[in-house]
Design a protein around this nucleic acid. Sequence first.
DNA 1: AAGTGTGAAAAGTTTCACAGCG
DNA 2: CGCTGTGAAACTTTTCACACTT
Lengths: 213, 213
Amino acid sequence: MDAETERSDKVDIPKKAIYRLSIYHRCLQKLKDNGQATVSSTTLAKAAGVKPAQLRKDLGYIGQFGTRGLGYPVGVMLATIREALGREHLQPVILVGAGNLGSALLRYHGFQKEGFEVVAAFDAQPEVARAREFKIPVHDVSELEEFVIAHEVKLAILCVPIGPAQEVVNRLVSCGIQGILNFSPIMLEVPVNVTVNNVDLALELEHLGYFIR
Amino acid sequence: MDAETERSDKVDIPKKAIYRLSIYHRCLQKLKDNGQATVSSTTLAKAAGVKPAQLRKDLGYIGQFGTRGLGYPVGVMLATIREALGREHLQPVILVGAGNLGSALLRYHGFQKEGFEVVAAFDAQPEVARAREFKIPVHDVSELEEFVIAHEVKLAILCVPIGPAQEVVNRLVSCGIQGILNFSPIMLEVPVNVTVNNVDLALELEHLGYFIR
DNA sequence: AAGTGTGAAAAGTTTCACAGCG
DNA sequence: CGCTGTGAAACTTTTCACACTT
């Protein structure tokens, strides 16, 4: 956060609710691992850090599968959320810019765990990045288009410096990337059918700075 | 995003406006470096990626210093925003958890550039982290309280695994930390006078996943 | 003519409260 | 009785439009 997202589509379910659905999904996964079969809005809401009414309203956006007096069936709910978020299949992702931050993200397993697979990385100096020994192959950035098209990749994580950021984005867009998780502190220009989600680390720290007295 | 922030205080200026003020500050800095003396809401808004009316409204929260028919004086505006955000002096920050992500952030210069100084890092295995050779000292996590109190640190970046996260937070809170930038995908429990800003990387990617068709 | 400052309308979100079902 | 589902109310944030100043 903030993180900010542009473009809508796919309709009516509020942006913030989408974030929360992902959180619910995560909590439900944990409940399922613990063998829980049902859960009430109060319990799940507490785990997710929201109010029960909000949870119920959010679930209302994607269907209705609770049993009054009892609660929600964990399994069904998991499947429904997963479908609503389009997270039924493993989604391939590429990472561009294997510098400090990019390298750290290549080792980060949080993405895998949520149904995304970082299939390849690209860098202007692939030899340097490769020296850090990842399981994921680091290609030269010149091979970007070919790879994206061949593997039908739709999502990219962008960790390049500000300078080349926009140019890289233009290339990503031109070969069919539809979603970009952008770590550069810069506003990217993209067509309306491409979604950019900005994660601006310095900004988050600044925001925090405002609240300390 | 998203990122999310709890607690208010200091009042009336909308949370989102605070984020944007930081962005304006950044853009203004660039304008100043280019020798620009004044700027119009239209121009600055474009650079910041917002609508002109929104920019004017945001500035309205912290004062009025534009000249009708002309625009805003870059220097004055920079100073005013900086003061409003409490960013007049360099703010010390500690980082806890020097694993993959933590290490990357220790090398990240975006924080310094925005007026924050990461003064020390803490880890359960400081030797391992130290081997990566940072300019910033990595202490054993047992020295946490002593350091925070001695240096009057108010902000912490948290990159520890989910397991120990809440316990570390309790310790941070107990020794006077007031703001926590949390990278663990977990809801932290803190007293109302402490602000937590969550940066959940997997969540941001998931959100993006929703928008690809 | 150009561009700010702002009240008022619109849009978006959250919370409430309660009817209705198992 | 317990808990879901949801319309309506409350609140927050964005956008508009235009009076006003230089």
